[in-house]
């Protein structure tokens, strides 16, 4: 299992990287953490003729506070950096909670924020979390930057709005409103495996302890992370009682998602897991929003 040959470029600036991408088009692949790309290459299922290694671009690795209370994460920030960062724990506790579920430390030490998003694996955790957090993505081309909302970013299995000549350079996480709660849950066959189903939940309560906003996003159920819109609508303006949560979880599992089957889980088993996880995650998120968990 050895990869096919390719030309290798290791630019030290984003501009240089973009120039290579522009030059080689579809033949080139940007190499971020490589934790999905390289095994695919080892199986010779991916055979890019050019790799543009982004790892030397040190400018793309950072975690910065945004003045609005949110966070800016450089695309080449490693998962393990995110995992250990106190600012992330404080300002984006959902991200902090999610990190240990992502594969294993050896993978997280290489895997990057931008790479995970751009790879757009529907079983990956962070894309679902990004949707729950209403993230924004800064995409850079030779003509300049554009911002894309997370709701428009993921198009399908391994597909995003990033053109081959562009790079995702930054992820912006907006601040969490007061009286918000969060939870990430997933069920995998073994610790660190891709989840059979996972869910990221963000909820905000209003002054009357009713649900002001809920975002519930599933992973590993379709060809991209799937927000449970109907379930969220059901919760809005409601008091998040156990019954309301249960009803929302059931709606999420039956109406909001259309899961597929594979050798590990049938569609109906996935729906069952989605229901259970949604209930657990919402319960925990609302408890946190109330400050009781």
């Amino acid at each position: 299992m050895k990869p096919a040959a390719f030309d290798y470029y290791a630019p030290s600036t984003t501009e240089e990287a973009l120039a290579y991408l522009d030059q080689f088009g579809y033949d080139a692949k940007p190499l971020a953490g490589g934790q999905s790309l390289i095994p695919t290459m080892n199986f010779r299922l991916a055979q890019p003729s050019v790799l543009v290694d982004l790892n030397p671009i040190v400018d793309l690795s950072y975690i910065r506070p945004h003045e609005d209370g949110g966070l800016l994460l450089g695309a080449m920030t490693r998962a393990s950096q995110v995992e250990r960062d106190p600012l992330v724990a404080e300002r984006a506790p959902l991200v902090h909670e999610t990190m240990p579920s992502i594969a294993h430390p050896q993978i997280r030490n290489r895997s990057t924020m931008g790479g995970t998003m751009a790879h757009a694996d529907p079983a990956a955790e962070l894309p679902a979390v990004a949707i729950a957090l209403n993230a924004q993505f800064r995409i850079r081309g030779q003509a300049g930057d554009r911002w894309v909302s997370v709701d428009e970013f993921f198009l399908g299995m391994f597909m995003t709005v990033i053109e081959p000549s562009e790079l995702l350079v930054e992820v912006r996480l907006p601040p969490m409103p007061p009286r918000s709660g969060w939870c990430f849950r997933e069920i995998a066959r073994r610790h660190g495996d891709y989840a059979l189903v996972g869910v990221a939940a963000m909820v905000t309560l209003d002054g009357g302890n009713q649900c002001d906003q809920a975002r519930l996003v599933f992973l590993s159920v379709e060809d991209r992370p799937v927000p449970a819109r109907r379930a969220a609508e059901m919760l809005q303006g409601q008091t998040p009682t156990a019954e309301a949560i249960q009803a929302a979880a059931e709606t999420a599992a039956t109406e909001d998602i259309d899961p597929g089957s594979d050798i590990h889980a049938s569609a109906s088993y996935r729906r069952q897991l989605a229901k259970v996880l949604a209930r657990q995650a919402l319960t925990q998120a609302f408890a946190r929003a109330r400050g009781v968990a």
């Binding site: 940007p30 190499l31 971020a32 953490g33 490589g34 934790q35 999905s36 790309l37 390289i38 095994p39 695919t40 199986f43 299922l45 998962a79 992502i102 594969a103 993978i107 997280r108 290489r110 895997s111 990057t112 924020m113 931008g114 790479g115 995970t116 751009a118 790879h119 694996d121 990956a124 955790e125 962070l126 299995m157 391994f158 259309d258």
Partner: peptide, 28 residues
């Protein structure tokens, strides 16, 4: 929940494309 149509050529492509996926690790 609706299901999508199918034409053989497309399915070949779809499946060939669909099947070539793996990955063990995470993140790009």
């Amino acid at each position: 929940s609706s299901r999508w149509l199918w034409i053989a050529v497309v399915v070949v492509i779809a499946i060939v494309r669909g099947a070539v996926i793996l990955t063990s690790g995470r993140g790009g």
